[in-house]
Nucleic acid binder design. Structure first.
Length: 557
RNA sequence: GCGCCUGUAGCUCAGGGGAUAGAGCAUCGGACUUCUAAUCCGAGUGCCGCAGGUUCGAUUCCUGCCAGGCGCGCCA
């Protein structure tokens, strides 16, 4: 039982053995053998697997690629290999007997919802931080994109053998949290009938007033507090409520975090002072213009960064350094931050900080998501924060639903600008790719239901007459399944969830094509039983893939 | 000015050293007495932004340029 990845390794070792034999025979002269790569050819006429090794060796061996290929082919014998062709400029194409595909169905059924897993990540401890929207207002569509991408990257990395923690960093101690607290207090007092001005830089949204109303109903004895206690109270109570809201919204979106990390806890633990002392002792700090600076340019940043402002307050960078230090001290060897497009300037300073803390710059990695343009009926939706006209994450989910939202965000490569067509996403039609995939799953459920009612269960794969599967539609489906482990591993390694969204679409397409061309129920028993095993395996794979994307797999549509 | 992202079919986007460059949508033409037609089958379209370079081979890697988007706080 082998996946495509395992077979590639096997074939590579056979090629290597042939080459070594050729060297021994004195027919080939090279200093060393390069890595032997096998690929899954796009074009079916090129066999199951193909290698370009003859072309790679052409120069060092000073021989024609096709002659090298012939030399390899002459020495390659294996019962598994049905046909070997030399094609084009010197490709070696392998056509295998169908047995490996039948075996793969057994593997899929044995592994079930685990199918596709690998140990590509070798247990590397990765901390994935994403969204981390300030707890002072509703989340926006870039936050929604970050949530979908981050959550699916985490799922993919776990499937690919990484040890992943997910975190949401709550900026509940900074400037903006303070402004938010003052905004809330102002609304609260206005509701009590006081005639006071709303802070000039305050948050104008209705949600602040709604929170103030809620606080009023809770009848907290604020009169007994001193002014600074009141300020702390409003800030803390307000941001805590916002965090609760964010947690709810994200959970409804299928996104949960292992840890919600509060900035204020860093402050309370003295973590910022610790950083300052550490950097001072290492000579990375200097004073200028009444402020304390981190000489980040020493580590490749484009300018130095203020750590303590003239007014004695810390900057956000200080807390962020402390936070990342905390992550590193917890044993994570790779910190991945998923950030919005307005934060790319942040990479240099954090990378500098990580190095200053004594870690490799490679321990810190940033995935920058690009801008999301919302379209409705082909027109771009204009948003103005100042006028309070913007589409929140919640609006988006209300309009298109969780599954379409996640799928649309995951469809595109994370670092590409994204045109999100709200009209299309909300449409329950064939034009909407998410339904296309879900429909494949629903169709399978319906078939298996009817098969079961007719008394035809899915046989154990070892009992089923799988060699009845001979049609290209059947074999193509299985081949595609065989590629899932490498697809997941690649998607995890490059942090590219769109590979899986595309895989889902392609795989569903293969199934729909099979469905049209091959009947299951009503065929002669051997064909029926073999196809039922196949269809059940397709169901397993579709569920796996949809689960990785965080999209539901409905049984009926 | 500097930095990040993006230029591939009419539109939205895949493909990131290899064999005739792909998908969806849109357009046109077919396929339901049979497991869900939310489906399938067929048809056309491309100086892969431009110019150099590396390579046996470049849409893919490197450099420069052009175009678009977004950043460049003692805000986060």
């Amino acid at each position: 039982m082998s996946t495509a990845a395992q077979l590639k390794e096997l074939l590579a070792s056979k090629i290597r053995a042939s080459l070594e034999q050729a060297i021994q025979d004195g027919e080939l002269r090279v200093d060393e053998l390069p890595d032997i790569q096998l690929e899954s050819p796009r074009d079916k006429s090129h066999g199951d697997f193909a290698s370009n090794i003859a072309m790679v060796l052409a120069k060092p061996a000073r021989m024609a690629p096709r002659a090298i290929a012939q030399m390899i082919v002459d020495r390659l014998r294996d019962p598994m290999i049905e046909r070997l062709d030399i094609a084009g400029p010197g490709f070696i194409n392998f056509s295998l007997s169908h047995q490996w595909l039948y075996d793969l169905l057994t593997l899929v059924h044995d592994q079930g919802s685990e199918f596709g897993a690998s140990n590509d990540g070798e247990g590397e401890k990765v901390l994935l931080e994403f969204v981390s929207a300030n707890p002072v207002g509703p989340m926006n569509v870039v936050n929604a994109r970050a949530a979908a991408v981050g959550d699916t990257v985490a799922r993919l990395m776990r499937a690919a053998g990484y040890e992943v923690g997910t975190e949401y960093y709550v900026n509940d101690a900074g400037n903006q949290a303070g402004i938010f607290g003052r905004s809330l207090e102002a609304r609260y007092r206005q509701l009590q009938g006081e005639d006071i001005d709303f802070p000039e830089d305050g948050y104008p949204g209705d949600y602040v007033t709604e929170l103030a109303q809620r606080l009023l109903q809770e009848a907290v004895p604020l009169e007994d507090m001193k002014p600074d206690e009141r300020e702390t109270f409003f800030k803390r109570w307000g941001t805590d409520r916002m965090v609760e809201q964010q947690q709810q919204d994200l959970a409804a979106y299928g996104v949960t975090f292992d840890v919600w990390f509060r900035e204020r806890e860093l402050h309370a633990a003295g973590a910022l002072e610790e950083i300052i002392e550490l950097f001072k002792s290492k000579g990375y700090m200097f004073e200028e213009d009444g402020a304390l600076w981190f000489r980040s340019t020493q580590f490749g940043d484009d300018k130095d960064r203020v750590i303590i402002k003239q007014d004695g307050a810390y900057t956000y960078v200080t807390a962020d350094i402390a936070y990342h230090y905390d992550k590193l001290k917890r044993g994570y060897t790779k910190l991945i931050d998923i950030l919005g497009p307005d934060h790319h300037g942040y990479i240099g300073r954090m990378r500098a900080a990580v190095q200053a803390l004594g870690y490799s710059s490679e321990a810190f990695e940033v995935l920058i998501l690009q801008y999301v343009a919302l379209l409705r009926n082909g027109q771009q939706v204009k948003m103005s924060k100042r006028a309070g006209e913007f589409i929140t994450m919640q609006d988006l989910l209300d309009e298109v639903g969780k599954d379409a939202a996640r799928y649309f965000f995951l469809m595109r490569s994370p670092e590409s600008h994204l045109d999100f067509d709200l009209s299309l996403a909300a449409e329950q039609s064939s034009e909407n790719p998410v339904f296309y995939v879900q429909y494949a799953h629903a169709r399978i459920c319906s078939m298996l239901r009817q098969a079961g009612e007719a008394g035809h269960g899915v046989l154990d794969t070892r009992q089923a007459p799988l060699d009845a599967l001979q049609r290209p539609e059947e074999l193509d489906l299985i081949k595609k399944m065989a590629e899932l482990p490498e697809e997941i591993a690649a998607a995890a390694r490059y942090r590219e969830p769109h590979r899986i969204a595309r895989y889902a679409l392609d795989f569903a397409g293969l199934f729909h094509s099979f469905y049209t061309h091959c009947r299951v129920l009503g065929e002669e028993p051997a064909v029926r039983d073999a196809r039922l095993v196949l269809v059940a395996a397709v169901q397993v794979v579709l569920r796996r893939v949809l689960d990785l994307l965080g999209v539901d797999a409905p049984e009926t549509m």
